[in-house]
Design a protein around this nucleic acid. Sequence first.
DNA 1: AATGAATGAGCATTCATTCAT
DNA 2: AATGAATGAATGCTCATTCAT
Lengths: 227, 227, 227, 227
Amino acid sequence: MGDVKAGGAAVKRQKRMPRAVREQQMLDAAVRIFGQRGYRAASMDEIAEVAGVSKPLVYLYLNSKEELFTACIRREAAALVAAVRAGVSGGTGGEARGEGSADRQLWAGLQAFFTHTAERPDAWVVLHNQARTQGEPFAAEVAVMREEIVAFVTSLIAEAAREAHRKPELAEREVAGLAQALVGAAESLAGWANGDASVSAKEAAATLMNFAWAGLGNLMEGRRWVP
Amino acid sequence: MGDVKAGGAAVKRQKRMPRAVREQQMLDAAVRIFGQRGYRAASMDEIAEVAGVSKPLVYLYLNSKEELFTACIRREAAALVAAVRAGVSGGTGGEARGEGSADRQLWAGLQAFFTHTAERPDAWVVLHNQARTQGEPFAAEVAVMREEIVAFVTSLIAEAAREAHRKPELAEREVAGLAQALVGAAESLAGWANGDASVSAKEAAATLMNFAWAGLGNLMEGRRWVP
Amino acid sequence: MGDVKAGGAAVKRQKRMPRAVREQQMLDAAVRIFGQRGYRAASMDEIAEVAGVSKPLVYLYLNSKEELFTACIRREAAALVAAVRAGVSGGTGGEARGEGSADRQLWAGLQAFFTHTAERPDAWVVLHNQARTQGEPFAAEVAVMREEIVAFVTSLIAEAAREAHRKPELAEREVAGLAQALVGAAESLAGWANGDASVSAKEAAATLMNFAWAGLGNLMEGRRWVP
Amino acid sequence: MGDVKAGGAAVKRQKRMPRAVREQQMLDAAVRIFGQRGYRAASMDEIAEVAGVSKPLVYLYLNSKEELFTACIRREAAALVAAVRAGVSGGTGGEARGEGSADRQLWAGLQAFFTHTAERPDAWVVLHNQARTQGEPFAAEVAVMREEIVAFVTSLIAEAAREAHRKPELAEREVAGLAQALVGAAESLAGWANGDASVSAKEAAATLMNFAWAGLGNLMEGRRWVP
DNA sequence: AATGAATGAGCATTCATTCAT
DNA sequence: AATGAATGAATGCTCATTCAT
């Protein structure tokens, strides 16, 4: 335990660059180290080294380990939400612009989500695994982002129900539970896809759509599973 | 951060009891502290104090922090698996014994799972949140348990497919993905049910069955979601 | 600056002694180092070394630098007050027991004071110079002791005035100022006697009595200095 | 501890001013911060900020923390001595010029001393409390000034003895002790007057004259206090 | 005349771990 | 079966000081 090198080499020390740039380098390094070691196990020494600067500079710019971690969370949460938003309201590639039907939107969002988390695995670990287990200042930070996403999914499900103009068979509470489950499944799949199995973002998104959408469809038609 | 008391008082110091009993007290304390603080933030001092013994005794019986944590993981993983198994092949309460259809088995297993995690929230946090973020010796330990459960769910899905005697529309890889997603959704719901919302185990299980089973049914009938 | 060795050698490391004893050793070392270096410049490392123990033990027993310093102040303040009290109400050597006239009491107290501060110069520096310049938690601590002594001297002066059965020529405010000045002069002489000049406690006390008592006498007789 | 703001706001940053002026600003800031925090606890960062300049400029003009502190001591010592001198040989206000009798000179000097220290409390703290507790380079610096004052007081006492044309009853050693005690009493009163009590300079000076002069008078007449 | 960028070295504090009884 | 006494090795953080411009 403990002595595993955190992967890539330290940034070659380059002198005298503007603060904004250095700060991003530091955050890059911090996300990597926090992701690989965890909040407590990560040492400011290692982060500074990986960032290619001295420790005092990290403190000068980011004040404390706690604030540094918070800055990581904020940056990565914003990046993830932005990626998903862009996916939903853009079509990832050259696809047709404009907001499609609820299911297409969900599909696009899921693809964007899986793509982003696959591209930045350390960031995803920081958000999903580390931040949420380090108690209050941090868990709350991610919770904000997560609720944003859950709310979005909730609205998609509700819209879908409306589109299917079924009588309001789905109680609000139930919709919330479904959105939770869907987001939870996505989060779980993200870890799985990045880790053990090597599954493309598209595949992961398709699995989830098959799994979830059909089930949602059934529910909306009033067909429930009963014990 | 940092000064939050870990809840209940330390066990009243009682002298001279058999090793097996002392060990369980220590594991109880350790699970509680590890769950509330995280692996790194938990201190052997606090664990010993909560266990009502001196630190050297903890070392005498459990050798090191690492082994202590591992022992916690093993004990709690075994307990969780046992609880789910008992739920599946027993009917939780006075219900009919014997293995029912695949869906009823899943339903029983989910109920047992949600019940158990609700009863031992610290243990669940240790398994799901802490162990998986502390790098190799530990993540592997939980992975074993998780794979056992995923394998079990996989077999249930496969069996259900067989029961529905559809031609094998579902590739093995696809079944694996579905099981992952289902387990992931369950794990996510467990945290959600214990935490923010206060949802009964039965409710959580029902939500998941509705969500998943219908979707699985559709898939088995070859009805897929296509972009 | 800075590299001057703090005098005597570290206590030869002796293992395994009861906590109370170790604590006194630590306080001894701390008084010495704080006295010689000042609060901020003193390092816990050096204190531990001089005490002949490891740093963690110092923290185990005394919690923090702040508490350690406070403990020093309290111990030395108590010791000084006790010494003066003993001097006043005992006669330092084989002299007659029982409380004498006000002037004899003052004389005895001054002798005890100068003797004690000469015997424990570091302690005196800690109380008089260091503690009072390190801001609130500490200054207050010494102020308590000083007020005790000032109050005592005030009562002696008042008593002397009564003994001389003069009409109350001395306003209370004036008496307070005189006590302040007397104590201040004593404090100043203590530093001077221990430092530059080498003056015996008896000499110092005599100088002060000559200086102060006659002046007080004049005042009581209503003879004031007027511009 | 530690977070107390050092009072007034930083000087509004004004660019490009002559070196001499900037240096005085820096010394002003330094005296304030050294006085309030102590030598070690004062940070060059805070001093630069309060002075309204960047840190490198402080180093450019004053070279090091040590030299900066020394410069403060020198400036304030000179200012204090000058104030006392002016008081003695001038009469504070419109009073008659020319050197009066020894006692009037002392009276004038004391008034000037108490006035000056009351006007610049931080400077007095630097000289009396901080510099003397920071070891050699600094203690010596103040000692020079103090000796100057003690010598002056000594000469006044000797002159007074001559004026009283008594046979030389007072040994030189004794006179020195008396001067020490007098100066010590004055120093002590200065802290007391600025701090807890709010006593005017005139009051403080009068108290001391009453206290000291009469006693000295007695001594000169050969009336001593004997045990 | 003046500063933004950067660092070596030190310091208080904590923790897992062991020894002697 | 159990513990009071003790420590090596980190770790977060700060500070005086210096370049390069």
